[in-house]
Amino acid sequence: MKNRPEVGVSTAVFRDGRVLLAQRAVGSLQGLWSLPGGRVEFGEKLAEAALRELEEEVQVTAEIVDFAGIVEVMPREGPQFHFIVVAFAGRWISGEPQTGPEASAVVWADPKTLDGLPVTDDLHRIVAEAAALVLPESMTA
């Protein structure tokens, strides 16, 4: 266990009014659905890290629209890990989402309901914030 939080990034990518979710394949959040993302490398800008992780994790390219929020990720039963995740809102550019070592499944979900999937803490809030930045008002009301 590290004695300080690690910085991560994620991107809420929207395409045709839907948001891209990935099911975590490893770690303590395995099986939960979240936004594609991962750790920031030393010397890497946050938005660049978010786009790199999106490409590495699910083979999708997007453009960053804006900052969508921050989420702290810690287990409730004690601090085995502590991540500060900076989330961005983005628009899909290219690539069909693929599974891989970190994403056991991928889906384009309804941003209002997240298709009723079991999701990570604060995901509904972050997706709502991102949707307000990317989608037309008629799709977020």
Rank of each mutant, 00 (worst) to 15 (best):
G90R: 03
V127C: 06
G31A: 05
L117P: 02
A12M: 03
W92D: 02
P75V: 13
F14V: 00
G90C: 12
V86Y: 11
P5M: 14
A87H: 13
D110L: 02
P118C: 01
F42L: 07
Q30P: 00
V71L: 07
Q23C: 08
D121T: 11
P111C: 09
F83D: 14
F67W: 12
F67C: 10
L54E: 00
W108L: 03
A131Y: 06
Q23T: 04
S34T: 10
A128F: 10
R18T: 10
Q23P: 05
R18A: 15
G37T: 12
F83L: 14
F14S: 02
G69R: 02
L117V: 01
A141K: 10
V13H: 01
Q23A: 11
H82F: 07
E129R: 10
R15D: 02
L35E: 10
G8E: 12
F42S: 11
L51M: 13
Q30F: 12
L20A: 07
A22T: 06
E102H: 14
G78F: 14
E72S: 09
F81W: 15
M74F: 00
F81A: 12
T99H: 12
G31T: 09
R15N: 03
V73S: 08
F83C: 03
V127P: 03
D121K: 09
F67D: 05
W92S: 04
V134S: 07
P36D: 05
L117T: 05
P136S: 13
V119D: 11
D122G: 00
R15C: 03
D122Y: 00
E63C: 03
Q23G: 06
W33R: 08
Q80N: 13
K45D: 10
W108N: 01
L46I: 04
G116N: 14
L123R: 12
G27Q: 14
G95F: 04
G90D: 09
V86H: 13
G27P: 01
G8H: 10
P36T: 05
V40A: 08
F83N: 09
A132R: 07
S10Q: 02
K45P: 00
V106I: 12
A25C: 14
V60M: 01
V85F: 13
E129W: 08
V13D: 05
A105I: 04
A68Y: 01
E137P: 01
V26D: 11
E56Y: 12
F88Q: 11
W108F: 04
V119A: 08
V71D: 07
A47E: 15
G37K: 10
I126C: 08
A87C: 06
I64G: 03
L32C: 08
K45S: 11
M139H: 06
M74G: 04
F42Q: 03
